[in-house]
């Protein structure tokens, strides 16, 4: 099978990394604090993101559940919009799987490639790199952007949560995987990583709306296991997971759930948390103050 990702220096230009950016519906329309902190973080580490012009829904969940044809065409259009020569960066794990899987299917199937070129009236870009936000850490050295990196997160006890991000469908098994990225990154910044049993149990995604009791069951397992392991907060890297862990948790006095991008931005000294934390259902401010990560 042809692999889509190759480590190269694409994106480098006068010391700045340039990517086109696919936010996806969850980041764009409900996880504003996630998007905002992610953009701030990229700006701080000299990464220039240009939002993919006129992008559409990736077809995740509902389209591939009930309409094969629509599920095929939605990500195809997004791929056709990606500018040549710079990697396409995706921050949502479901969007990532849909787009990358579709990209590889087109690359490996001449009939599908022809269909793509007829439909979107442009040649298929054989060299397009589609990367997840996590792959940024292979391309930058975070410690270059701060003094005393290991003192930034003041030993706050973090339960990393990946949900379905580590589980890849068979056609992406030989692509990049993201084991340990949150742990590695946040421990370098002085976070204390807690190990617990449910860090890669799915959050329930849309069952949260259609079958709340099933979502509640998994969410409570995840949060209570993290709490039993003495974590002070859970860190997610997906807007949808963040929402579900907050709204479907019925555990008594749950610990706050932070976006990975919020902690990264805070470690770099971004002080926009007053825009982010009022959007959280479980207020992380008391914990962050107690740990000396926030003064006001």
């Amino acid at each position: 099978m042809t692999k889509s990702s190759k480590i190269n220096k694409a994106g480098h230009e006068s010391g700045k990394l340039k990517f086109s950016f696919f936010p996806g519906c969850s980041l764009k329309a409900s996880g504003h604090e996630n998007t905002d902190s992610l953009l701030k973080f990229c700006d701080m580490v000299n990464i220039e993101l240009t939002e993919l012009d006129d992008w559409n829904c990736c077809g995740s969940s509902s389209a591939h559940s009930i309409d094969h044809e629509v599920a095929k065409l939605l990500p195809m259009r997004n791929i056709s919009l990606a500018p040549k020569g710079i990697p396409l960066l995706i921050a949502c794990p479901s969007c990532m799987i849909r787009m990358k899987s579709t990209y590889l299917k087109i690359k490996n199937d001449p009939i599908l490639k022809k269909e793509y070129e007829t439909l979107w009236e442009k040649p298929f870009d054989e060299d397009l790199e589609i990367i997840h936000f996590f792959e940024i850490f292979e391309r930058i050295n975070l410690e270059d952007y701060m003094d005393e990196p290991d003192k930034k997160l003041k030993k706050i006890k973090i339960a990393p949560y990946y949900g379905c991000m580590l589980s890849m469908p068979p056609d992406l098994r030989h692509e990049k995987n993201y084991y340990g990225i949150i742990e590695e990154t946040l421990s370098k910044l002085g976070g204390d990583i807690i190990s617990y049993g449910y860090s890669n149990m799915c959050c329930g995604t849309y069952l949260s709306a259609a079958k709340p009791e099933l979502a509640e069951n998994v969410v409570n397992k995840i949060v209570s296991q993290a709490m039993e392991a003495k974590a002070e907060c859970i860190v997610t890297a997906c807007s949808m997971c963040h929402l579900n862990l907050e709204i479907r948790c019925t555990v008594k006095d749950p610990i706050p759930v932070l976006h990975f991008s919020e902690l990264l931005s805070m470690a770099l000294g971004v002080e926009d948390h007053k825009k982010w934390f009022p959007r959280h259902i479980v207020d992380p401010v008391p914990l962050l103050k107690k740990r000396g990560l926030l003064s006001s």
């Binding site: 379905c164 068979p170 098994r173 890669n200 995604t205």
Partner: peptide, 17 residues
């Protein structure tokens, strides 16, 4: 009920999607 989280397909020894 299946949401397509791929937990099963990652664990499948026969790599069935």
């Amino acid at each position: 009920i299946c949401v397509g989280c791929n937990t099963c397909s990652s664990a499948c020894p026969m790599a069935i999607d």
